[in-house]
C-alpha cells in the first residue's frame, strides 16, 4: 500500500519536475530516512574535513600535561588522552586523515577495477578469463592479511596504506563491473548501436559504461566504509599513520593500554569509526534502492 502511494507521488513529481532529474532524485532520496540521515552525517564529516583544523577547541597535536586522562566534562567533551590532548579535537582533525586515506584508496581501486571489469566483461573470452582468474587469486587472500603483506613490502606510511587498500578493492570492483557489463552488453540498444556502425570502443565507453555507473556508485559508497575500517585496522596495527598523528585507527591503537582505566579514550574514536562506516553502508543501501533498475519497480 505504502509502495503504491509513493509511486503515485513519484508520477506527480515527474510531471511537475520533468526537466530536473537531479531534483527529482533528491526528493525521492530524502524519503529514505536512514540513507538521508547518513548522507547528512557524511556531509558533516566532509565539512569537518575541510574546516576541522580551524574549529577544533584545542590543538590536536600539542600535549598538555596538566590535564592527562581526564574524563568527559564541559571543557573537554570527549575527555583527554594520555598526553592531555583533547579527544574531540583529535577526532575532528583525524577526519582529514582517515577519510582522505579511504577515499583515495577506494577511488584508485574503483578506477582500476572498473576498467578491468569493463574490459573483461565486454571483450570476454581469454581476456575475461585472465582477468577474472587473477581476481580469484586475489580473493583467496584474506583482505587484511593481503593489505598487511603489501604494507610490509612497501613499508609503513599513509601512502602505502592507500595502495594496499586500493589493491584489495580492485578485484571486487572488477567482478561487480564485469557482471553489470555482461548484463548491459546483451541489451537491444547495444545491438542497435552496433547496427548503426558504432565501433566497439565507442559502444563500450559511450553506451555500456554509463549503464554500469549506478552499480559503481553504489559499490563505491559501500566500499568507503570497508576502506575506513581497513585503514583504521592497519593504523591500529602500527602499519599506517604514525601513532602520534590524529588518525582514528592510530588513536585506538595507542589508547588500548588504558582501556581498563580510561574507557573514554577508546570509546570515542571507536564510536566515530563505527558511525562513519555505518553511515556509508546505509547510504550505499539507499543509493542502491534508488539506482538499481531491478529494485525501482
Amino acid at each position: 500500500m505504502s509502495n503504491l502511494q509513493t509511486e503515485t507521488i513519484t508520477m506527480e513529481q515527474m510531471k511537475t519536475n520533468k526537466d530536473n532529474r537531479f531534483l527529482q532524485f533528491w526528493r525521492l532520496f530524502r524519503r529514505k530516512k536512514p540513507a538521508a540521515i547518513s548522507f547528512y552525517f557524511i556531509l558533516f564529516l566532509f565539512i569537518m574535513m575541510i574546516i576541522g583544523p580551524f574549529v577544533t577547541p584545542y590543538d590536536a597535536a600539542e600535549p598538555n600535561y596538566t590535564s592527562v586522562l581526564e574524563t568527559p566534562s564541559a571543557s573537554h567533551l570527549f575527555g583527554t588522552d594520555e598526553y592531555g590532548r583533547d579527544i574531540l579535537s583529535r577526532i575532528i582533525a583525524g577526519a582529514r586523515i582517515s577519510l582522505s586515506v579511504s577515499f583515495c584508496a577506494v577511488t584508485l581501486g574503483a578506477i582500476v577495477g572498473s576498467i578491468l571489469g569493463l574490459i573483461s566483461g565486454f571483450i570476454g573470452k581469454r581476456v575475461d578469463k585472465l582477468i577474472m582468474r587473477t581476481c580469484d587469486v586475489l580473493f583467496a587472500f584474506p583482505e587484511l592479511i593481503l593489505a598487511i603483506g603489501i604494507v610490509a613490502i612497501l613499508g609503513p606510511g599513509l601512502k602505502n596504506v592507500i595502495i594496499a587498500v586500493a589493491f584489495f578493492s580492485v578485484p571486487s570492483f572488477a567482478r561487480i563491473v564485469r557482471g553489470a557489463t555482461l548484463e548491459v552488453k546483451e541489451m537491444l540498444f547495444v545491438e542497435a548501436e552496433e547496427s548503426l556502425g558504432a565501433s566497439r570502443l565507442r559502444i563500450m565507453l559511450k553506451h555500456v559504461f554509463p549503464e554500469t555507473l549506478p552499480t559503481i556508485i553504489v559499490y563505491y559508497t559501500m566500499n568507503v566504509g570497508t576502506a575506513i575500517l581497513a585503514a583504521a585496522s592497519l593504523s591500529f596495527l602500527g602499519l599506517g599513520a604514525e601513532p602520534s598523528s590524529p588518525d582514528w585507527g592510530a588513536m585506538l591503537s595507542v589508547s588500548r593500554d588504558y582501556i581498563g582505566t580510561a574507557f573514554h579514550i577508546v570509546f570515542f574514536p571507536g564510536l566515530i569509526i563505527f558511525l562513519t562506516v555505518l553511515a556509508f553502508n546505509l547510504l550505499g543501501d539507499g543509493l542502491r534502492e534508488m539506482l538499481d533498475p531491478k529494485m525501482k519497480d
Binding site: 537491444l188 540498444f189 545491438e191 548503426l196 556502425g197 554509463p210
Partner: peptide, 19 residues
C-alpha cells in the same frame, strides 16, 4: 555499408539508450 543499410527493432523500449 551500414550507412546504407539500417535496422528498426522490435522492442522500442529496449532499442533506445535509456540514459
Amino acid at each position: 555499408y551500414r550507412q546504407k543499410m539500417q535496422m528498426v527493432f522490435q522492442d522500442p523500449y529496449a532499442s533506445l539508450s535509456p540514459r
